[in-house]
Structures are given as structure tokens and as C-alpha cells.
Write a protein that binds this DNA or RNA. Structure first.
Length: 270
DNA sequence: CTTATCCCCTGCCGGC
DNA sequence: TGCCGGCAGGGGATAA
């Protein structure tokens, strides 16, 4: 269930696998992937060489030589994998297959089928309705204290909900926000307009630092999403209800906020 | 306009 | 063991 760090790791993998390779054939294995259709049929990508792979927020972009870009979002359970070509049925949950001139296949797997892909003319990815209001990338264009202060001052929404709003800044999801708020010692339910200048400064500075850390931490082994077999929880408080806070030793508590599971240390975060 | 709730899907886990 | 509710790191649509 990827957020910016996991999507960034995907971008690095895809860059190594795809740049300079030609996509010989495109096979859409689950039409649900195209439920919200883009301007061009995905199969148009066939025969084209991959020039670059980019990431913006939680979106991936494959720039192809023919002046088109394949845009993908992993949603909750999507992932790209690479295999040597073998004949026979696809592994379960395969939604898209890109056959490469190297004899390899890059597949998109997605258990819950929320993932989406679109093909757009180069430079026009922002014309997709979903990307039209997307805010600046949380890592590549870190939010300034001034902009965060301005946005926070305008709303009583909990700060956790505000930070997950992709129109303010793109890339943070449930885990990132939980961990960033813990590091900044701010309670998730605090109304955004109640934060002090010092707290807003800690937050703005802490976001890119956490993202860098999370990318590094999760690059160290194979990327397996939490909840799947073999997953390792590298995070400090996420999914650690009842375990001792590493700072004060008190118990981490679980609540819900905006319909999402939330973890916090009530004595360290206020 | 903002904010809260529901929905899309499927698998897994814990409790009974 | 079997069933069932609850939950899951996404975002959009809809209702208030």
C-alpha cells in the first residue's frame, strides 16, 4: 500500500529495468485497470522505447519515444515486478504485462484492483482529472513553512487529515503522516489552525527528512507491503499499538481519524 | 465552498 | 475447522 517512499523505490527499479528498452507488446489483463480511461489506448505504447521514468507524488510516469507517457498509480496493493519471459498462465493478480525486447516481462500486479493506468500525450499528464489538482511533490519540492502555515491557518481539520490532502502536497499517506507527526511531537487530531509557528516549522522540516529516511530504510530489502507475508515493519509507531514508545516508554495508542487507523504516543505528542 | 461518509475490491486476521 | 466482522500505507463521488 504504497506512499511516496515506496513509489520512489518503484521508480528506481523501473528506471533500471526499462530505460533504453523497447516495449514490444502491451497486454491489458484486467480492463478494470482502465476504468477511468485516458486519452489514448494503452496498447499504443507497443513498439516504443522507454526514454525516462519519473515520479511525482504517488504517480509513476514512463516517457516513451513516440511522444506519449504511460501514467500509473499503485493505489493500495499495486506493484510492478520483473520476470524472465515464460510461457503459460500469468501469476495471480496480474493486471498488465509489458513485453520487453530483452525477453523480460514487466508486470503490474494488484490484488484489490484499485490501481489505474493511463496513456497520455507527452507533457499532458496534468490533463488527467485525477492529477489536475495535485499539489507539489513532498520530497522534490518540499513545502515551505510559510505555505504550510497559510494552509493550516485556514482550517480546523485535524492536522493529520490536512497533511494527507494531495492538493496541498503530494505523496504523504497514512503511514508517512503518522510517523512525521510522531517525530514532530504533534498530536494527529490537533486542529490545523491551532499549531504554533514552532510546531509548523518542525513539521515542514521533518517531512522531507522522514521521506529520505523511509526510502533508504525500505531500499535495504525487497519491498513487501505490510500485511503481506514476509513484510517487515520498519516504522516507529505505525501498527505498534500497545508497544512502548521508544522515547518515553508509554504505550502507543490506536484511534481512527478521518476514517483511517491512526497511531500516536499520547505523552510525547500534544 | 468545506467537510464527512460512503464506495470501489480482495485477502487476511482474530474472535467465537 | 468454519464463519464473520473488521481492517487494509489509495482516491473519487456523493451528501450534508
Amino acid at each position: 500500500m504504497p506512499e511516496l517512499p515506496e513509489v520512489e523505490i518503484h521508480a528506481r527499479n523501473l528506471r533500471a529495468w526499462l530505460v533504453g528498452r523497447r516495449i514490444e507488446r502491451v497486454e491489458v489483463l484486467d480492463p478494470k485497470l482502465l476504468d477511468d480511461p485516458g486519452p489514448l489506448p494503452l496498447e499504443t505504447a507497443a513498439g516504443q522505447r522507454v526514454e525516462a521514468v519519473r515520479r511525482d507524488a504517488k504517480y509513476l510516469f514512463l516517457d516513451l519515444e513516440g511522444g506519449v507517457t504511460l501514467v500509473a498509480h499503485l493505489r493500495m496493493t499495486g506493484r510492478f515486478v520483473r520476470d524472465a519471459y515464460v510461457a503459460g498462465p500469468y501469476p495471480k493478480f496480474s493486471r498488465l504485462a509489458l513485453y520487453l525486447d530483452s525477453g523480460e516481462v514487466v508486470r503490474f500486479e494488484d490484488r484489490r484492483r484499485f490501481g489505474r493506468a493511463w496513456l497520455v500525450p507527452a507533457g499532458e499528464e496534468r490533463s488527467l482529472p485525477e492529477l489536475r489538482e495535485l499539489g507539489p511533490d513532498a520530497l522534490l519540492q518540499p513545502i515551505s513553512v510559510e505555505r504550510l502555515t497559510e494552509a493550516a491557518g485556514k482550517t480546523r481539520r485535524p492536522i493529520k487529515v490536512l497533511l494527507m490532502d494531495q492538493t496541498l502536497l503530494g505523496g504523504l499517506g497514512n503511514i508517512c503522516v503518522i510517523e512525521v507527526l510522531y517525530r514532530a511531537r504533534i498530536a494527529p487530531e490537533r486542529p490545523a489552525n491551532s499549531l504554533t509557528p514552532e510546531e509548523l516549522r518542525r513539521l515542514a522540516e521533518g517531512i522531507p527528512l522522514f521521506l529520505e529516511w523511509a526510502i533508504e530504510a525500505q531500499s535495504r530489502r525487497e519491498l513487501i507491503y505490510l500485511g503481506e507475508k514476509g513484510a517487515e515493519n520498519v516504522f516507529t509507531i505505525y501498527r505498534r499499538e500497545g508497544t512502548p514508545c521508544p522515547t518515553c516508554g508509554g504505550a502507543i495508542v490506536y484511534t481512527t481519524l478521518g476514517g483511517r487507523g491512526t497511531y500516536a504516543c499520547p505523552s510525547c505528542q500534544s
